[in-house]
């Protein structure tokens, strides 16, 4: 057991690899730890015998809490609540945080209800002032930001929007000690059976995890033209996103849809191609670091949020961009 104030960061580990967003959460945890005078514990829940990835143990955390149970082979929030609640109750961390992945978004509210504590989801900024924790998060499709302050109950639970709390180049530290806990999960924590985990076809990078996204809207005009986006994405190591009507038309898969009824993304670079910039689309991408818009209509609302705008025919511009990037990146 660790002395003093603790921040727990739940790291999602799958197949020996930690999710990038979990590394971001670990990084954010350490920054917050500095403000709160707290140490960071990386919490990893797996089936017995799974390895802890090196980058979790040596990213600067004080310790790794490795919770094991056969029921944790696949992610199972019902089981995780049963596993985590008693640990939290006995070790009293100030904060429990995790990435706002689909799994994190399910687990965090369940844990908050189980412990009877406060939760702020999909946060884009967190900090502590005089021991009080504040979290900022987008609301109303990103049209506003709300800042919450947590009350007296502990722990405060947070989920962090992916790609926002990106670590700089942190020098690898010494490997933190790993404490292994063999969990006991009551029968009712094992009521869900994950029968199959289906991987999306191909090499495709998930859009929520991509650093660069090239995204196509109705201005792409037909499904075949998405090949132009695929080519640019290939050169940039990007993922391909889409607006809703594109998905509704069956041109792209739903998992590629960016926006309020699709996915929320925050890449370093978002290239919007033939996308008008409706508020529901902006809801999913306006926290991107740099937005480039290509649209033939100079009055398209997407230009209001774009850092760089190109007015013109996307079908002509894309091949030129791809060729130029190829040259610059020497591919």
């Amino acid at each position: 057991m660790s002395e003093g104030k603790q921040i727990w960061v739940l790291a999602e580990v799958l197949g020996g690899q930690v999710k990038p967003v979990s590394l971001e959460a670990l990084h954010a945890g350490q920054t917050l730890g500095g403000e709160l005078g707290a140490t960071v514990t990386a919490v990893v829940a797996t089936a017995p015998g799974a390895e802890i990835p090196e980058d979790v143990a040596n990213c600067g955390v004080a310790r790794v809490l490795h919770i094991q149970h056969a029921g944790l082979e696949t992610f199972n929030s019902l089981a995780l609540v049963e596993v985590l609640a008693p640990q939290v109750q006995s070790q009293n961390p100030e904060v429990v945080m995790m990435g706002a992945t689909n799994h994190g978004k399910e687990l965090a509210p369940a844990l908050a209800a189980r412990l009877g504590v406060g939760l702020a989801t999909d946060c884009i900024e967190i900090h502590a002032e005089g021991g009080m924790l504040k979290a900022r998060r987008p609301v109303y499709a990103g049209k506003a930001h709300i800042t919450f302050q947590f009350g007296d109950t502990r722990p405060c639970i947070l989920t962090l929007r992916p790609n926002v709390f990106r670590p700089g180049e942190t020098p690898a530290g010494d490997a933190a000690p790993v404490e292994t806990v063999t969990a006991d999960i009551p029968e009712n924590g094992l009521r869900l059976k994950v029968k199959e985990v289906v991987q999306a076809a191909g090499r495709k990078l998930d859009i929520t995890e991509a650093r660069i996204i090239v995204s196509g809207g109705m201005g792409m005009q037909k499904p075949e033209n998405f090949q132009l986006l695929e080519e640019l994405a290939e050169v940039l190591g990007a993922a391909v996103g889409a607006s809703r009507p594109v998905v509704d038309n069956g041109w792209r898969e739903y998992s590629n849809q960016v926006g309020q009824t699709g996915r929320t993304v925050s890449p370093d670079l978002y290239i919007a191609c033939g996308i008008s910039g409706a508020v529901q689309h902006l809801a999913g991408m306006s926290s991107s670091r740099c937005i480039v818009a290509i649209n033939k209509d100079p009055n398209a609302p997407i230009f209001d949020v774009a850092d760089y705008g190109i007015v013109g025919d996307v079908l002509e511009i894309l091949p030129v961009m791809t060729a130029e990037f190829k040259k610059v990146l020497q591919k």
């Binding site: 509210p109 369940a110 908050a112 209800a113 939760l119 987008p138 109303y140 869900l192 809801a283």
Partner: peptide, 21 residues
Amino acid sequence: VDDDMAQVGPSLAVLLGMPFV
């Protein structure tokens, strides 16, 4: 889609002692 917390469903399930997805 106003407060966007995505909290009520899983929290409700835990309060009712039910499984949730």
